[in-house]
């Protein structure tokens, strides 16, 4: 379960670490150093998390097994929303946020209202529809 996936991320983090070390000790430049630390974390945090789950569960999902048949994958994949208005409401709210940055603070009124409406609406929708 997620074994190879975790290896990819960890390898990425380690590689970023090597580059970061060379860069830091050779160049002594702060901004690049900080950003490369971010890159290390980007690889290691999810990578180690996946690795932890792989060690804990150990098992293989049908998509990890080369010989899995379609029947092995039978069961619930997940619940998927088929329609929802809330992404649009949230997106519009964010758009008004940006307009507020440009044209004036009063545009935060529609911006915030839309964002709040979307938070409430989407949460309620998830409750109704199960695990979305």
């Amino acid at each position: 379960m997620l074994k190879q996936e975790s290896y990819i991320l960890i390898a990425f983090g380690i590689f970023a670490g090597i580059i970061g070390a060379v860069y830091w000790f050779w160049g002594h430049e702060d901004s690049g150093g900080v950003m490369l630390v971010g890159a290390i974390l980007l690889g290691l945090m999810p990578g180690l998390y996946y690795y932890y789950w792989y060690r804990r569960s150990g098992g293989q999902r049908p998509e990890d097994r080369p010989d899995a048949t379609v029947a092995d994958g039978a069961g619930t994949v997940d619940a998927f929303p088929s329609t929802s208005i809330w992404p649009f409401v949230l997106g519009s709210g964010c758009f008004f946020f940006v307009l507020a940055l440009v044209f004036g603070i009063w545009l935060l009124v529609p911006g915030l209202s839309l964002v709040l409406a979307a938070f409430i609406g989407a949460t309620a929708e998830s409750r109704r529809g199960g695990s979305v």
Binding site: T76, V77, A79, F80
Partner: peptide, 9 residues
């Protein structure tokens, strides 16, 4: 609206 996707169908 939500759809539950089952692989056996």
């Amino acid at each position: 609206m939500t759809d539950l996707i089952e692989r056996h169908d």
